[in-house]
Design a protein around this nucleic acid. Structure first.
Lengths: 201, 201, 201, 201
DNA sequence: GATGAATGAGGCTTCATTCAT
DNA sequence: TATGAATGAAGCCTCATTCAT
């Protein structure tokens, strides 16, 4: 990510927030850098003092939101010992974030994937950290004899994320009226994975 | 999709196959229409006799491959009555296709998502038909008392697809040496969903 | 130089001639590619069917004009046996070309040198061929005992060209009214070099 | 030239020397003002306290080096009465400077010409003063009956400078290993011009 | 005098698509 | 059907310069 200014200045987050809005509205490719600059109230060139290029803005949004997400997730799970309940909370948490930060979610869900670099070159370590929480939780459950030992945490992790992500995508893409309940979807998915991995159902 | 020539001429599939190769190699956005034309051994303009535009080539690949996929899936499942076994075969089938048609899978998994139109405007009815097989299978299981009634087939369907798709994506994106076994991943995912949806474990 | 279209099409020379005019008028850096296109009566993009980029236009002008120059010089000198007279004709020829193709000369004299690539990377083989005629003529004179043996043809060649070129530059840069006579300058320079290299004065 | 600070402060020459290095390394156009500032150890804005703009730095280098050159040349020639020997010393002096101040020479020889302003607008009076020494020397020779009266000092001056300059350029542009001897080139050029202008050879 | 964050104009080039042949 | 030369819109980014501190 953009290493240029080490500290998060006020202006930098001004640009980030403007970019989330503009990218959500017009899409990353259709959004012009000058649109973001205008929305942020800075000159076009100023953006390049904080970001390497247009794509770097997108990737920075990802990094920053994932940092926040990761911290908030930790807070949410910290007093929950039961692996099953942790899974349920993880799913609910994920969908709450999607619902409460729709613009950011839309950018992350949809626009980020339109980025060649993200899909092909970028190593999303922050995402791995986020998902690592799930993988660890599976391992804990296995050690406690709650989850079956033959479950591969790697496969479980990506499956679980794929499921959450796909549902989030469908929700984001759906028109307001068609939107299904994210809350109950969270419990459904969590329920399937909890039972699906349990030693004795 | 491109309605222009109703029948599949020889030249059309020449272009389609050329496009799969080129898109897989260079990516959809980086591939030039003239690259596809050159690979197919036709003039640039000829492509526009068979496809509306560049994106139409991509979408046509999707349609055609999905048609094939759907037919082959039907064949694969037709003599399997058990919903559980059908799920397992679905997962195995999906990953077999990915493995055996790597170029096409790469285009569908990765490049298709780089297409704005696909994500935002296109209604992937063929995909729905494909997933509908899964949703139906869940309903059948519920009617037979095998799967829990409170499972929402819609949520289950997208979760299952998301899980398969994310694993396929990770496999496609991974370097050859790091590739995990798709076969065992199929059984893992199927196992989780089967148990996860079962009435009694 | 631009290898793209092997033959000199009509459109290509249309662009070349337009570029000579525009570059002479506005200078290479100030001239926009679209200015050249407009003058040539083609679309901007068409230029890139014949030239790699803006600088390639400039370099192509150099190549083409040098080809012509070289051929015409050969014609001019072909029946002159005396090395001394050949030097005089070379100088006159050079200045005639400058005078008769002022726009082209201005581009070649002035604009070409504003090109980084020309000065630093490009090997001006056509120029070497042109100057090689002079070096050869010095060697001939030496063999005939007309020119002193200790003259280094390489040094003589670059000195002679430097002298012609600097005078041409001063002439091109000078305002119309201040312009000195190129004809007499030719004879002066030729006279100095002829006597300067002669065995006995 | 920059008239802003009349005296040469320490900081000003700090910037000048930094600029010579940076321009020689990266070329005038590729060098950024901030590169020069960094090398000089000052802030970007500070440069504009001493120079009007980027080009002014280049032109100032020219002016300052030419001042030095002119003074040193005067010193070198002051006790040499013979016009012929003065020419020889002039040529040697010129090439010694090129050899001993390679970075500065490279900037002056190559980069200065990439400057539009220099070629088209700037009146290089310092250069004229430098060359004026040669023109005067020719006139002296003519008055003493050593050089032919029909020689035009103006033409001789530019020819001589063109010869020296072109050779210097070839030397600067040549790779280290290919470099010819500037010393013998000096004597060759001087020899040609001395004999070339002499009354009786 | 010195700083350095902010400014914002400006243009080359690509490449999907067209259409006369 | 097929060709392929021609079109032309569209936008990212650099970096010299300014000016408030």
């Amino acid at each position: 990510m953009s290493e240029l200014p080490l500290r998060r200045t006020d202006k930098r987050s001004l640009i980030t927030e403007a970019a989330i809005e503009v990218f959500a509205e017009k899409g990353f490719r259709n959004a012009r850098v000058s649109d973001v600059a205008k929305r942020a109230g800075v000159a076009d060139g100023t953006i390049y003092l904080y970001f390497k290029n247009k794509e770097d803005i997108l990737l920075s949004i990802f990094e920053e939101k994932m940092d926040l997400l990761l911290a908030t997730l930790g807070e949410r799970l910290k007093d929950i010992p039961s692996p099953e309940e942790r899974i349920r909370q993880f799913a609910r948490f994920h969908f709450e974030q999607v619902r409460d930060n729709r613009a950011a979610a839309e950018v992350l869900q949809v626009e980020l994937r339109l980025s060649n670099k993200f899909l092909k070159e970028y190593r999303p370590e922050k995402l791995w950290a986020y998902l690592g929480v799930f993988a660890q939780l599976v391992k804990d459950g296995q050690e406690k004899g709650i989850f079956r030992a033959e479950i591969d945490p790697f496969v479980a992790m990506w499956s679980f994320f794929g499921a959450l992500d796909e549902l989030a995508m469908q929700w984001v893409l759906s028109r307001k009226n068609d939107r299904f309940s994210l809350e109950s979807a969270a419990d459904q998915v969590a329920g399937i994975f909890i039972r699906g991995m349990s030693e004795k159902a």
